[in-house]
């Protein structure tokens, strides 16, 4: 590269001491949570892991849906597809095992197999617009609050208020989507069939993502 004129470096400092103080604080906090319930300690550790991973990899679900439109890049989109594919394998075993054991309700289904109706369509589009404007979705907003963004503190506050507003209006939206079906793939294709359908969809999405970036940017490097 040709010569460049970087801004003069200020004498850099290490923030490791603050990290250590935070770690000590977390140990005390974890200890306090343990007196309430060990499950809360697990929740804290899982959250810390998610926040740490999101920050270190700059993983941004928002960018996975936004960048294809803005620059044509699908590198994060493909990473999201990969994440779903890997999680699917783990989830499949947990659910299938429960099924074989004769579980009446398959784990995860009550919370995550949601009705497909008007409320889902409207909510999804609203969420899509909101995350692009605010520069981050739920996990991204939390992660950026931790990084010190004042803007994301505002967006978190209004995210929370918007949630309350949404809950308030939920009965109305539910009345519009009364017969909305909950579709769990294994109910329609059998367990291994569902896995095949899922991976066919993921594979198709992956190839479309590659094709899109080649078309828009001319390269997938």
């Amino acid at each position: 590269m040709s010569e460049k004129t970087a801004t003069k470096r200020k004498p850099k400092s290490s923030q490791i001491p603050f990290a250590l103080i935070l770690l000590v604080g977390l140990i005390f906090f974890g200890n306090y949570l343990f007196t309430k319930s060990p499950n809360l300690v697990i929740a804290l550790i899982l959250g810390l892991a998610f926040g740490y991973i999101l920050q270190r990899s700059r993983f941004c679900f928002t960018a996975g849906f936004r960048d294809p439109w803005l620059t044509g890049s699908t590198s994060i989109t493909r990473a999201v597809i990969l994440a779903i594919a890997l999680a699917t394998i783990g989830f499949f075993f947990i659910k299938y095992k429960a099924f074989l054991a004769g579980a009446e309700v398959i784990p995860g289904n009550a919370h995550f197999v949601n009705p497909i109706g008007i409320s889902l369509l409207v909510g999804g589009v609203m969420f899509g617009i909101g995350m692009v404007i605010a520069g981050g979705c739920a996990s991204g907003t939390l992660m950026r609050v931790g990084e010190g963004f004042q803007m994301q503190i505002i967006s978190l506050i209004f995210f929370v208020l918007g949630s309350l507003w949404g809950v308030h209006d939920l009965p109305f939206w539910n009345s519009l989507s009364k017969d909305a079906p909950r579709i769990f793939l294994p109910d329609y294709f059998g367990w291994y069939g569902a896995l095949a359908v899922q991976f066919a969809l993921l594979g198709a999405a992956y190839f479309v993502a590659i094709w899109w970036q080649k078309k828009k940017m001319g390269s997938i490097e």
Binding site: F127, I129, S139, G162, G166, W173
Partner: peptide
Amino acid sequence: ATVGGLMMGYGARLASGCN
């Protein structure tokens, strides 16, 4: 941040979740 946050919050409740 205000508009985006509100839309995400409202939308996430309708869609029963986020990303």
